[in-house]
Design a protein around this nucleic acid. Sequence first.
RNA 1: GCUGAAGUGGUGGAAUUGGUAGACACGUUGGACUUAAAAUCCAAUGGCCUGUAAGGCCGUGCGGGUUCAAGUCCCGCCUUCAGUACCA
Length: 937
Amino acid sequence: MSYDFNTIEARWQKYWAENETFKAENNSAKPKYYVLDMFPYPSGAGLHVGHPLGYIASDIYARYKRHKGFNVLHPQGYDSFGLPAEQYAIQTGQHPALTTKENIARYREQLDKIGFSFDWSREVRTSDPTFYKWTQWIFIELFNSWYDDNTNKARKIEDLEAVFEAEGNTTVDAVCDEDVYEFTAEQWNGFSSKEKQEILLKYRLTYLAETEVNWCPQLGTVLANDEIVNGVSERGGYPVIRKKMTQWSMRISAYAQRLLDGLNTIDWPQPLKDSQINWIGKSVGASVTFNVKDHDEIIEVFTTRPDTIFGVSFMTLAPEHDLVQKITTAAQKEEVEAYVEATAKRSERERMADVKTISGVFTGAYAEHPFTKTPVPIWIGDYVLAGYGTGAVMAVPCGDQRDYDFAKHFEIEIPNIFEGVDISEEAFSDKENTIITNSDFLDGLKYKKAVKTAIYELEKLGQGEGKTNYRLRDAVFSRQRYWGEPFPVYYIDGMPQMIDAKYLPVELPEIEKYLPTETGESPLGRADVWAWDTVSNKVVSNALIDDINVFPLELNTMPGWAGSSYYFNRYMDPNNNNEVFSKDAIDYWKEVDLYIGGSEHATGHLLYARFWQKFLFDQGYVPVDEFAKKLINQGMILGTSAIIYRVSGTNAYVTKDLKDQYETEELRVDVGLINSSDELNLEGLKQWQPQFSDAEFILDSGKYIVGREVEKMSKRWFNVVNPDDICNNYGADTLRLYEMFLGPLEQSKPWNTAGITGVHSFLKKLWKLYHNGDVFEITDVEPTKDNLKTLHKTIKKVEDDIENFSFNTSVSTFMIAVNELIAQKCNSKAILEPLLVLISPYAPHIAEELWQKMGYDMSISTASFPLFNEKHLVESTKQYPISFNGKMRFTLELSLDLNKDEIEAAVMAHEKTQQQLAGREPKKVIVVPGKIVNVVG
RNA sequence: GCUGAAGUGGUGGAAUUGGUAGACACGUUGGACUUAAAAUCCAAUGGCCUGUAAGGCCGUGCGGGUUCAAGUCCCGCCUUCAGUACCA
């Protein structure tokens, strides 16, 4: 029987499922290892060959670790709440619960076909009430916590209340809203309950606040900053506008510094760390206050260059700045208002596209320089952003190019405070080579010293202090959507109240119309049964809301990243109904050892998950404050689209090489119609779509050759390759090997089905090597030296490759090994057995099949990884290339038994070497045993 | 603009600490088997020179440098991709 992969793979997939071969135990004498994939959104399109790339890599590693004697946790689940699932439901007009269920079933079927070693008994779905019960629970925990900057950790809100009762808030050093004012213990104790609640809300780690948010009318929801790309929504590409709304927010800014520090302790790709560092955007400098002349107002600015304070010649406020209205003089009022209105109209995108145009207006008001007390004109300009720092800057035109351009444009004075620097053409922003001058007490100082001195003097004046500023904003946590986790929150007198954890989950209500609204009301507002009864502790009909103990529930739902911020911990104890996870389970598994997923989550999921982990760590629920020790970003597999060229205005299509003779337009056609030499199947095309049924073709030597374009795999480009088709035609083992063979894991690469025959024929050769006709045949004869050499070379290489996640080269190594064994006519059991263990992480089905045929009744996954023995690699002689003065080269064959000195002597004694060296004294002879002999003249 | 990654045959890609560049595979060409096709197997395959062979020269984006020896290290450029962007 030839290699019948369909039968073999179906049999072993069934065997693994029935025997729960990959079930992980929460207790084991073996060391633990946790391999995690980023769980998928079950979208309607199903998987294409690009999706499983990371899963195959993690599966190889998980299977390898089992062979190495680890108790491996390798789970999988679905991120089934959120925009993608809901968008698909809206498109198909079906309820998201239904489409999600169907999509998950489809995903599962596709995943099973590829033969992953997932422990499906631990599956989680974020949209399942038994899961989101714990998402709600963590939300409540966050609500009941505040961040103490003294101890640098989150603490219980009761602690804060106790401090307020005893000392007021003047001694508290907490991360909180900017508008909290100071109060004493007496004042606190005199506040009403509602006043107390309002104040506490400003300290909680998740809080309700009216904030300016990114509103996307087409999607009918707000978006987080990381969900916006180039000013439009990441999903769908719709415009986003700024809008004030009352929203739940997560005080992630409290963790800014720890999120930065933690990066040094984890093995994640540098580009990913860089983008998180960038996103957090720490800058160190000073906060400086300027008094406004003839007003009581002060302007606070943040600057990274307090050393240039004597270079200030004007100030600029963002057009949205609160002070603009207050300080503008009557004479300037009209002009200022016109400008403010004009900028407000411009969308984020227009502002970004139009960076080069300099615009601004003078307010007529002046600030007072803290040291010189000279008047400083106050301008407004849209190059200053309301959302960063204080929304105001002290402009130092000689040291900052934007200030310089603004000053030049409006003919504002540009004083020079840098010694020996020409600023007639541009600003001078080189910190390192700065010597300050014209700056009173800062004269002659260099950058670092000047910064310190300036801050010291500002503090003495009470007009400034050293300050660190972060770009990271608190994350908006409300979505005006149906398909998400409901908040465990109801409102009494407008103040949010948490539902007691013992009554969770608060389940998503059934509603008929779940479509989002353009105006911003949440679809949950349409639910009839969506009120909270504080007596029965149940969700009840809205009609009862007039009852004294029935209150309205929160109408928003949580964003897509809620469930994904802790799911990795839930896998450790997924069926626990009493706790999010037991202490035993979390203490045993601790953290993810290897996490594989795409880099697109760098500033979303991966930042939020780190934040929640640190919070859970502060609360003592998890033993480590980084959830994933090592992370790898797999690259994307791209599609290779096929392009045909239609002669304009006709239904004739011209082959690629002749297209320049015509005026043509490009059309993409199904890649399934193209053979391995880029030739188009003309009959197939005619049947593919009606528009081609009477197409004519202009051919070159009877062939139509298509153009190729590498781009994202997508239905709209007709370049999607389905893994099911590959599994049916070549088998899952071939798919797995080929995806690895395509290139380095981290790299993006185009899919090309043509090349798959290479790895497929490797499997056929492997099969044939141990079969005589239809009969499985191996021998017990002692392996030869050559057999052992092939085997141990392979063990060494494959082990190194897996440890370095360089899976592509292992596949080549297997091919070489099998070719060598075929040449050696080796079907020795002593070789096959370890060889199968090496291959089994990559091609598990064929390995199991041959393993069983050898007579084992246990799964190959229980076998140990073979030990490498170097002695089998040693050759009796080796050819040494010798180079002399870079020009003359010859090889010398020497016995490997020789030691270093003997090789050296042999080289010197060699006739040709002596000729080369004639007349020259060699300075030294470098001999590296097993490597190359080097003669240095 | 800034940050990061990367440039190697017709193609995907190999190449421990600098040590015979192009492993392995696809594709292409020729051959064997076959009525034929598929499948399989064998051989050749970076470029150029020499009739073949032997051999030589040139070759890892470009220009320099270090070294007996550079795809690999150093300096200066160019190009591509990704992320980010008026961040004070």
